[in-house]
């Protein structure tokens, strides 16, 4: 009976609903495509060392991370290491700049953060320096560290050595210490290098001997079991050390600003 009057409001309501649905669809699509338009989302900060490319062993990561945390405690400088397997179409400069800013490395105002980025897919290295470290670690110095310390090692696939040598060189620059010796591949001063190598091996041998004597003395009864237990203990202490810095909100987020300083290189 009321049929002639009812359909009008109903269809109007339906139209409104349809319009709403369309708007919602556009909105959802917009959300879905927004990341495509902007494309870049910085990787999550995991601590001083974020090894997304999985080129470092747990021990390497813990050792380098502990070094960076100690350095931060001593000098205030926040130096982070990031490895990625791909830059996702970004230039290495854009990737490191955006990541370093998003992570807020270094203290606000001091802007004393540094990011060492290695992209294994594109075979690119970049040292991104905060606005406040340009004087201690210049672009030329950064380029030299990439060329002489990191590049040759990464070329040989020795990621841990290359990254650690690079970190050592960066920390030395930032603290005004003399440059550390280059790792194996460097070439350069031949005689001195061989000498350093020999000295290193003698020292290593001596340390091994001392360790062996110590372990033999301390182990007493069950030598093998004691050794195994000792190893577990040391790796545990390493782990706790790392998590104390990485787990806390201590690293990153300081709001240090970056201005495109640093240098890039290939390997």
């Amino acid at each position: 009976m009321p049929s002639p009057t009812v359909p009008a409001p109903e269809s109007r309501a339906r139209a409104a609903l349809l319009r709403l649905a369309c708007a919602a669809l556009v909105w959802v699509l917009g959300l879905a495509f927004a990341p495509l338009a902007h494309a870049f989302a910085p990787p999550a900060l995991e601590g001083p060392v974020t090894d997304n490319a999985r080129v470092l062993s747990a021990a390497d990561k813990a050792r380098i991370g502990a070094k960076l945390l100690t350095f931060k405690a001593q000098s205030g400088h926040e130096v982070a290491v990031l490895t990625v397997s791909t830059l996702g179409g970004e230039t290495v400069e854009d990737f490191s700049y955006k990541t370093a800013r998003a992570w807020g490395l270094g203290a606000k105002g001091a802007d004393d953060g540094v990011l060492l980025l290695v992209a294994t897919g594109e075979r690119k290295i970049r040292i991104e320096t905060g606005k406040g470290v340009g004087g201690e670690l210049t672009d030329v110095e950064s380029a030299r560290i990439i060329r002489e310390y990191i590049g040759p090692e990464l070329k040989g696939g020795r990621y841990a050595q290359g990254i650690e040598a690079g970190v050592d060189a960066i920390l030395a620059k930032l603290s005004g210490a003399p440059a550390p010796p280059r790792p194996s591949g460097g070439g350069g001063g031949g005689g001195l290098f061989v000498l350093a190598f020999v000295v290193f091996f003698i020292a290593l041998f001596a340390i091994l001997v001392v360790l062996a004597i110590k372990r033999g003395g301390g182990g007493g009864g069950g030598g093998g079991g004691g050794g195994y237990y000792y190893d577990g203990g040391s790796s545990y202490s390493g782990g706790s050390d790392f998590s104390s810095g990485g787990g806390g909100s201590d690293f990153g987020g300081g709001g240090g600003d970056f201005g495109g300083g640093g240098a890039s290189g290939d390997y």
């Binding site: 030329v140 201005g259 300083g261």
Partner: peptide, 20 residues
């Protein structure tokens, strides 16, 4: 080579300061 590195670094800094 050093000048080249400095120039590249400067160009990048100019780009960033324009963005900022």
């Amino acid at each position: 080579r050093d000048l080249q590195v400095q120039l590249e670094g400067t160009e990048n800094r100019i780009l960033r300061s324009r963005e900022q």
